[in-house]
Structures are given as structure tokens and as C-alpha cells.
Amino acid sequence: MDWTLQLLVLRDAALAMLLGGAVGFERELKNRPAGFRTHMLVGGAAALLVGLGQLVITDHRLDSVQHLTMDPLRLVEAVIAGVSFIGAGTIFARRGSQVVVGITTAASILMVAVIGVMCGFRYHLLATLATVLALIVLTLIAWVERRIPSNGDPGAKSG
């Protein structure tokens, strides 16, 4: 197998980790359950899984395997299923309270996984712009929400 293809997959994973790290840094600054390293690893793992799937399809050593096919959406499903467990671990309900925390962090982990998938498929511009959008949601919109008077709903700001 051509090692340059493997380096391309590694480059895509590095970009996914960089972009995931940007989102994770914002979560880290807010002291959320999943921060910088977690987001980096989720983005990188997603990109690596997608890239590995593409490498396997082009690997001529597997030509003897009859009818080897790959549905790219299956790779995406696998990434999302794995990330769901991590996201669920960041969501906590406080006893005796209706407040649930960690939903935004779980959503940011999902977003980083999707960004990683984009990097794995080499949609680098789309991944970068999606990261910018995620950061806008996590920073600018959160800033606006803090300035809007609360309606007394304890679950309204779930962070």
C-alpha cells in the first residue's frame, strides 16, 4: 500500500484534531465535563475511521476478497454510535432538581465528530467553516443568551 495515502489520512486526522481542539478549548474555558483533549481525540478518531475505510477499499491486498464494498454512510453511523456513548457520559441530572447539565457539551462532541468525518472525507473547507459556526454558537449566542432575562426555567441554560 502506498504510504503517501496513509500520510494523507494522518493529515486529515491532524486537521480534525486541530478543529476539534478549537471547540474543546472553548468547552475547557467554561470548565465543562469534556474539554480540549476529549474534543481533539473525538475529531481525530472520526477522521481516522473514515480515512481507514477509504484505505481499505483501495487496498489491492484485499482483491481476493469477493465483493468488498463500502457504504460511506455506514462509517458515519459507526462514528456517531461511538460518540453517542461519550456524549451521554457528559450529561448529568442533579438529584432533586429538574436541571440537566452537559447537553451543550454532548452536542459539541457530536459536532466535532461530524467535523472529523468531514475531514476524513477531505471536505476541509466545510469542516473549517462548520467549526467556525460551532464556535459562534458556543460563544456569541451564549453571550446573547446571558443578556436575555431568564423566564425562570431552570433547564433553560444547560451548558
Results as ranks from 00 to 15, higher is better:
A113V: 11
V65S: 03
R94K: 14
V50M: 15
I115M: 05
E77S: 11
V83D: 08
T58W: 13
I109N: 10
G96Y: 09
T69R: 13
Q54D: 13
T90P: 03
V79W: 01
L49K: 00
G120A: 08
M70N: 06
G120H: 05
S108Q: 07
V50H: 05
L48N: 01
I80H: 09
R61S: 14
V117A: 13
D63H: 13
T105A: 08
A113Q: 09
S64K: 07
H67D: 15
Q54M: 14
F92S: 06
I103D: 07
G89W: 03
I103F: 12
T90E: 11
Q54G: 12
R74P: 04
G87H: 06
V112S: 11
S64P: 00
I57Y: 10
S84D: 00
V101H: 14
I115T: 11
R95H: 12
G53V: 05
S97T: 12
I80P: 07
I115K: 05
F85T: 05
E77M: 08
H60Y: 07
P72L: 01
L52N: 03
A93C: 11
V76D: 02
R61K: 09
A46D: 07
A46F: 08
G51K: 00
A106H: 05
R74T: 08
L52R: 00
I109D: 06
T105M: 03
G87R: 08
E77G: 09
V100L: 14
T105Q: 03
V114C: 15
T105Y: 01
R61E: 10
T69L: 14
G102E: 09
M118H: 12
S64M: 13
D63T: 14
V79Q: 04
V76Q: 07
R74E: 00
V79D: 00
A45W: 02
L52Q: 01
G89E: 08
A45N: 08
V114N: 11
T69C: 05
G51T: 04
A47G: 10
V79H: 04
L49S: 10
S84Q: 01
V99A: 13
R94L: 15
T69E: 14
G102T: 11
L62E: 00
G89F: 07
I91F: 09
